[in-house]
Simulated scan of single mutants.
Amino acid sequence: MTTVGSLPNLEVLKLKTYAFSGREWEPNEGEFLQLKFLLLDCIYLEHWRAESIHFPSLQRLVLKGCYDLKEIPCGIGEIPTLQSIELRRCRDSVATSAKQIQKEQLELGNDGLQVQIM
C-alpha cells in the first residue's frame, strides 16, 4: 500500500476482493495526500488504524461487505473535507462507529457529513 499511497495524483482508490493483503492497515503519514474517494469492497481487513493526517483530502468513504472490520477509525471523522460515509453489508459495530463520527461532527457544528447505512 505504500507504493499506491505515494502516487502524487491519486484521487480515487477502489480496493476490491483480494486487493489488500493482511488483517491490519495503518497508512503512513504523507501517503494518500490527494485521495478524495476511498472504496473498500469485500476486503478482509479487521483493524484499520488511521488519523485525519493519513487521508487529509478524503471526501467520500464507501465500505461494502467488510464483514471483518470492527470499526471505522475515529480519526477519519476529523478530516475537514469528509462529506459522506456509505456502508453496505458491514458489521453493526462499523455502523455504530460511523454514527459516532457523525454525532461528533454535529457537536462541532458540522452538519454536512452524511452517513448512509444500507
Results as ranks from 00 to 15, higher is better:
57 S>F: 08
91 R>C: 03
105 Q>R: 15
40 L>N: 00
110 N>K: 09
7 L>Q: 09
108 L>W: 12
30 G>H: 09
28 N>M: 10
43 I>C: 07
48 W>L: 03
67 Y>A: 14
58 L>D: 05
115 V>M: 00
29 E>H: 12
45 L>G: 05
12 V>T: 05
22 G>Q: 02
45 L>S: 11
114 Q>L: 09
15 L>D: 08
115 V>D: 09
74 C>V: 14
59 Q>W: 06
85 I>W: 04
111 D>L: 07
111 D>Q: 10
91 R>F: 09
5 G>V: 10
94 V>D: 00
67 Y>C: 12
25 W>Q: 04
75 G>H: 02
100 Q>P: 11
57 S>H: 05
4 V>G: 05
112 G>I: 02
50 A>W: 06
31 E>H: 08
43 I>M: 04
112 G>S: 05
101 I>L: 06
87 L>M: 12
93 S>Q: 04
77 G>V: 05
63 L>R: 02
90 C>F: 03
10 L>S: 09
50 A>K: 01
54 H>M: 08
87 L>S: 08
102 Q>T: 13
96 T>W: 14
64 K>Q: 10
105 Q>V: 15
79 I>S: 01
96 T>K: 14
39 L>V: 13
53 I>D: 10
47 H>T: 10
104 E>R: 14
15 L>C: 13
35 L>A: 00
48 W>P: 04
86 E>F: 01
74 C>M: 10
10 L>C: 13
46 E>I: 01
112 G>E: 05
13 L>T: 04
92 D>I: 03
108 L>Y: 08
30 G>P: 07
98 A>I: 11
86 E>L: 06
47 H>N: 12
36 K>D: 05
26 E>A: 10
24 E>P: 02
67 Y>S: 11
95 A>K: 15
92 D>Q: 08
10 L>W: 11
25 W>P: 01
4 V>E: 01
97 S>P: 07
78 E>F: 03
67 Y>T: 12
21 S>M: 08
99 K>E: 15
94 V>M: 10
90 C>W: 02
7 L>T: 02
116 Q>K: 08
81 T>F: 12
39 L>H: 07
61 L>F: 02
15 L>W: 13
47 H>A: 08
60 R>C: 11
3 T>L: 11
87 L>C: 05
60 R>S: 14
15 L>Q: 02
92 D>R: 09
69 L>V: 07
94 V>W: 05
29 E>D: 13
15 L>A: 12
116 Q>F: 11
